[in-house]
Design a protein around this nucleic acid. Structure first.
Lengths: 233, 233
DNA sequence: CTCCCCTAAAAAGTCAGACTTATTCATCAC
DNA sequence: GTGATGAATAAGTCTGACTTTTTAGGGGAG
């Protein structure tokens, strides 16, 4: 699941990328391509490709006669799935999880409202199926099964919204939900109220009730915010 | 403003990237690095770096013995500012502008609510200044001046939210607003109601009234949706 | 002494060519 | 028909030489 193909290039990237996003090099630090190539025992060609990719993510900037400068985190492409994974794997995972949960709380209600308007019959069926799966795994420490259906549920909502920007956040939501299950809260069974909300949301979408779908999703995401001790607006 | 530095690498990227995002190569099309290098009259090294970057944006996938395969748009990193610019410059600009405006309508109200809680005194002052600037340029075909202050206003809101994911959408909002002014609607002076809403929003943030700030922003973004004939939820 | 220009050095950028490796496809034996 | 074998292909990697840009430093003119 660590993504980046298995070429030499990918392996170097998967080491250097996390180091940078973890803040191991303070902004303004200068790296030299040749030194990096030596350190990773790869040719300059490979190292240059790695630097180019990091540059396209705005993690670094390469300038002649200067070297490869690490940029401040304000510049980073924080929506790049790769960058998100690297940061979630690093030390400031909690902060990251909060940012993303707040993002969810903004996006998902609107997406659900659109899904209620645009979802196909097939998507409605998938939604119901996922909700039922969540119910079935909501008791007896079946956290993995619950997570699976939860992720699928939210993915369908985002896709069914018909907005590609929303659809592309499916992976982000999946990471957030997985993070919550695996590392942070949720030691026991999920909150029964949350399960009920998902079932009701599936119904609302099927009934084409956009306002209700939006409201229910707002309740779901508010629960997620509270779990992380983020004040509800 | 076309971004990507001025190396050979950047120039090739600025040609090939837009071609791909414009859909000139249907998904599944196979490009060969050597042929591309010939076409652009650059060495394979440079071409490989370009392909690597396109791959990191999930526009293409490179596989041995196969070549460089163009991926379906569903895979693209549509939040990459570079990709956004390329697509906005291309043929499906209108669709793109709609997607982004819907995204705005989800994000900005929540961001404004957070800004009302977190904005510094300095940011409140900036906000007021921007709003006054908008008022000053709201009559007499001073569209450029109006746009400038409008962009600055929304940037401050997104930054003041304190959420880095929101803050990073400043550029996107700037592109959307600029697109609206330069190409699409708005032949005459801006809607006076919108100007008033911005002034009131600046006041609400200064007064730390999160609920009001959120509601006012929702009205602003609903106006933007209506301009593009997108049904209001 | 200050300021400007000129030179030299440093690091990225570019190129060319040789070689390696993985993958696919077609052929052939069973 | 199925499975193993081999050859062809295109990306992947390495090396070394050369170019270009930018900065820093030194020397000369005022």
């Amino acid at each position: 699941m660590s993504t980046t193909g298995r070429g030499l290039h990918g392996r170097v990237l998967d080491t250097l990328g996390p180091e940078i996003t973890a803040g191991e090099y303070p902004p303004g630090s200068v790296l030299r391509t040749d030194e990096l190539a030596q350190r990773f025992d790869v040719s300059r060609s490979v190292m240059r490709e790695v630097v180019r990719v990091l540059e396209s993510m705005h993690l670094v900037e390469s300038r002649r006669r200067v070297g490869v400068t690490v940029l401040p985190s304000r510049e980073w492409n924080v929506y790049d799935p790769q960058v998100i994974r690297w940061r979630l794997a690093g030390a400031d995972r909690p902060r990251q999880l909060r940012s993303l949960t707040v993002l969810r709380s903004a996006i998902e209600p609107v997406a659900a409202g659109l899904a209620a308007r645009n979802a196909t019959a097939e998507q409605c069926a998938e939604l119901t199926e996922c909700a039922l799966g969540m119910v079935a795994h909501s008791r007896g420490h079946k956290l993995e099964g619950y997570l699976f259906h939860d992720v699928a549920f939210h993915r369908v909502i985002l896709t069914a919204s018909g907005n590609e920007m929303f659809a592309r956040l499916g992976d982000v939501v999946a990471e957030v939900l997985a993070g919550r299950t695996h590392h942070d809260v949720m030691f026991e069974d999920p909150d029964p109220a949350a399960v009920t909300l998902h079932v009701q949301l599936a119904e609302a979408v099927r009934a084409r009730d956009a306002a209700r779908a939006e409201k229910l999703t707002r309740e779901i995401t508010e629960g997620a915010l509270q779990e992380l001790d983020i004040l509800a607006p």
